[in-house]
Amino acid sequence: MNSPQDSSVVGSAPKVSWREALSQNAGAYVGLILPLIIIALLTIWPTVTGKDITRESIFTIMLSIALASSLNILLGYTGYVSFGHVVFFGLGGYVGFYLMAVQGWSLWPAMAMGGLAAGLLAFLLGKAILRLRGGYFALATIGVNEAMRAFINNFEPFGGPVGMTLNFQVYRDYGGAAQALRMTFYILAAITFIVILVSYFVRMSKFGLGLLAIREDEDAAEVMGVVAPSAKTWAYVLSAIFPGILGVLFFFKNGSIEPVPAFRLNFSIEMIVMVMLGGQGTVLGPILGGIGYQSLRGYLLTSPLFKNIQLAVAGVLLLVIVLFVPAGVVGWLRNRFPVLRRILQ
């Protein structure tokens, strides 16, 4: 018989001319423009205004963006709802903090180890709980986070229920507390930048296409040859590493760590809300979501009218989004203005 390869219909892939390849590739980067501009603006904004307070609020926004974008790799691309994603932030933070506070490590290797610990946990967990679908997976991630918090609460090397604090002297190695504070901001900016690049290249890659296929219909994806178990696990690991690193940075800046703030379930849910608000499954979505959510929260918390009921107001807004704009801002724009699709990735 003649082998299927040399048939005309399903014939071998024609060569791609270099010109076409170039234009295609150039087109492929269009979607990066907006995300990178936004991150760049956020990074230089505190220098422009010259106020420390601006830097602090942008630190919160940027942290949100980085966390939401990481989560989006699992939630938005792969379609698995990790309700307890904060476990990676908390565990990474704890491991890194322990290394700095007790073992005297410096920030960089501690961050690396925090990321590693989170990634490892995701890898091990992924093998087990990613078998669960839909609501069962979401529940399991809640269980994992609660179990971890309860465990750390009992784990004496990490300080048990009181947690750990950094000796103030530590900041001296970084040129004093003020200098260290400024430094954490720029480190955060760099990490956010990397997260966005990773998110983008995953989205545009074959691996990412496999994830999207899993999101749409996991069984059909497997029939088409997507090796779902390993693809999901790697997506989970990727989405866990950055929260792990960021946890170390955050608690370093914070100066202390305790079980309750490190594993706060609501923090996970906030990440999800940001992803939803901006548009799940897009690169730009979590960025806009992070900015939008934190600005709104800041406004509600300080507004005399809403201050007392800010949680309820946020709830109403969330409900409106879920019910009426489930695709988020970016998704809505993409559907509304198909011309903009290339830019709004």
Partner: peptide
């Protein structure tokens, strides 16, 4: 269709 080709034989 790209999914079919990318992950198929």
């Amino acid at each position: 269709v790209i999914v079919g080709s990318c992950f198929g034989r």
